[in-house]
Design a protein around this nucleic acid. Structure first.
Lengths: 214, 214
DNA sequence: GTCTATACGAGGATAGAC
DNA sequence: GTCTATCCTCGTATAGAC
């Protein structure tokens, strides 16, 4: 059976599309790093899931660390940007908090791997691949909101620093446990659209009720 | 300067105390596994921090996995036991919740490495080293308390399952971030006694206020 | 029980053909 | 740009002396 000439129907692999190749590597790498962290991640596993040769990783990203840095950068980009353009200054603390939380939860719902990536980076590498701007500034924003709420009297007497951490925990821990608890029947997977929306709602309710002055 | 005879002051190492050797290995291993998880942990690093030879790990624990299992078991023992003997059945849901939370936070404050060990196990290994009894039962207890509180009307309308996860997050996330955020001046280390007590207080306050019916 | 030395496999990285 | 084949370091695990 003859094929149309000038068309490689069989042997689809050598597409020679640089962008596409990088994209699949990055996607596979994000998954691997999210589950295992930098050290325990295997370049071979990353390559295997893409279909492209392992050496492509080194061609495009120099080495494992280069790939890791790129994954870290891209994973955080969306979150950083979203939170930066929030304009919370002129809002009341409780509205600001709700908007902040909704934005945060939207981001991580879109990219559920982000919390585990952050976690591995924080625990394993003590955050050494983070620029001082990144996740630090996230917490700073939240601390400020809480501080203003306390002084304004709309939030109860809480420690802004400690509470900021706990609030983040309420939002993000869900995604850390997700991998472990997801062996559930039906459409109760923790990362299904319905469950993610519910988590967003539940987390925001819990936090707002938790900080409010009674 | 002569030393008392029959006393090895110099060359302290060959003590030949089996229990002591195992103990130092386990302590060092717990630290290493807490930071890096099973795969990324290095037996050489574990041994180096103890002063005993690397081969002692294999002598006492067969292999890296055997050591890991033992660390896992011991780390969880305290928590499992403490929560099992709580007797929460005859208490009102809000009192039960507070007691449960205080017990949980006491345990993890005594052993701050536990949350990161759990985390690594959940994310990296998808909980495969867990028996079905362990951390699952922790959450089950919490879910039951929340359910009873909702039906009794003392808690607001919340989803017990989702809220249980979020409550755990409020308590435990602190310890996950601790390694990363601890570069703080003075006695503001996140794992200092004062800060741990404050965290216990802040977390309980946030949760109780967050679930209560208004 | 403890150590040193070493075997062996896994995994990161490179060379060179196509 | 992509692949295959190979190198070599690092890390687990064992052998054997003390």
């Amino acid at each position: 059976m003859a094929r149309p000439k000038n068309k490689k129907v069989e042997n689809v692999k050598p597409v020679r599309d640089a962008e596409a190749t990088q994209a699949v590597i990055l996607m596979s790498a994000e998954e691997e790093f999210a589950q295992h962290g930098f050290t325990a991640a295997r370049t071979e596993t990353i390559a295997a899931k893409t279909g492209v040769a392992k050496s492509m990783i080194y061609y495009y990203f120099k080495d494992k660390e280069g790939l890791y840095r790129e994954v870290l950068k891209r994973s955080h980009a969306d979150l950083i940007q979203t939170l930066q353009k929030l304009e919370l200054e002129h809002l009341s603390p409780d509205t600001a908090l709700e908007i902040f939380l909704r934005a945060l939860l939207d981001c991580v719902s879109r990219n559920p791997k982000l919390p585990t990536i952050m976690f591995h980076e924080a625990v394993q590498n003590q955050g050494k691949y983070y620029q001082h701007s990144d996740s630090v500034s996230i917490d700073t924003t939240l601390i400020k909101i809480l501080e203003q709420g306390v002084t304004a009297g709309v939030f109860r007497q809480l420690d802004p620093f400690q509470s900021a951490i706990n609030v983040m925990g309420t939002c993000l821990f869900y995604f850390i446990g997700a991998g472990n608890i997801q062996q559930f029947p039906q459409d109760k997977r923790l990362l299904s659209k319905a469950m993610l929306e519910q988590h967003t709602h539940e987390a925001i309710s819990l936090i707002l009720a938790g900080v409010r002055q009674v």
